[in-house]
Simulated assay, not measured.
Amino acid sequence: MILGLFRKKNNNQAIVDRQYAALAAAARMPELYERLNVPDTVMGRFEMLSIAMILFFRRTRASATSGQEIAQEIVDAFFQDIDYSIRELGIGDNSVPKRMKKLAGMFYGRLEAYSKAMDTDDAEALALALQRNIYPETSAPADMSGLAGWMMAAESHLSAVAEEVIATGSATLPPVS
């Protein structure tokens, strides 16, 4: 009982869980892999989950404090999920922190690169950034213009989502059209 006094109370946990599940489901839409040239691999899934988090994070940057707080908790849940997945893949405990640091760097690098292109509404620059990140070692990467277009549409979709929807963890990403 006394240990409960030292635990962090998270009143947003149900909201965070609901929103993270919705974003993770969006990142697993088969059309992303079948029609938009995202490889259906562990890293391809990481890329799409990162994109879903980035889109949500960008939407909530203009939210009230509670929306930004929820967004940060969702990004934290994302990294906890990545940590769990790495361990499930059989990576030893000693290697996990090093890999997590690398994946965090990759995520924040993508946030910066994608935001730069999206802030200027430059779908071509976004497609090139996606190619560099999703196909880093390929001499002839797949065309990422469809994914860039979907991301632009998803950002527009999210910008129209009411604050009340964000506050309840009920925001969704649009389907691939």
Rank of each mutant, 00 (worst) to 15 (best):
A123N: 09
P97S: 12
A71L: 09
T60Q: 14
D76V: 00
R35M: 00
E124H: 12
F107Y: 15
E73V: 00
P141L: 05
P30M: 08
P141R: 00
L111I: 01
E88N: 06
L23C: 06
K98W: 01
T65Y: 11
Q80F: 08
R45A: 15
L173S: 08
E88D: 12
L32F: 03
T168E: 13
F78I: 10
L128F: 13
A142E: 15
Q13A: 01
S139K: 12
M118F: 09
D121I: 04
Q131L: 03
A24R: 11
G169F: 07
L173F: 11
D119P: 05
A21S: 08
Y135A: 04
L23A: 01
S85A: 10
R18Q: 14
G169V: 12
R87D: 04
R99G: 00
S145M: 10
I91Y: 09
V42P: 04
V176K: 01
F46H: 10
D76W: 00
I54M: 15
E34V: 05
S159E: 14
L130R: 00
V75P: 00
A113V: 02
I70W: 03
Q68E: 09
P97Q: 13
F107G: 04
S177L: 12
L103C: 03
I91R: 00
P141G: 11
A140H: 10
N94L: 15
Y33N: 03
G67N: 05
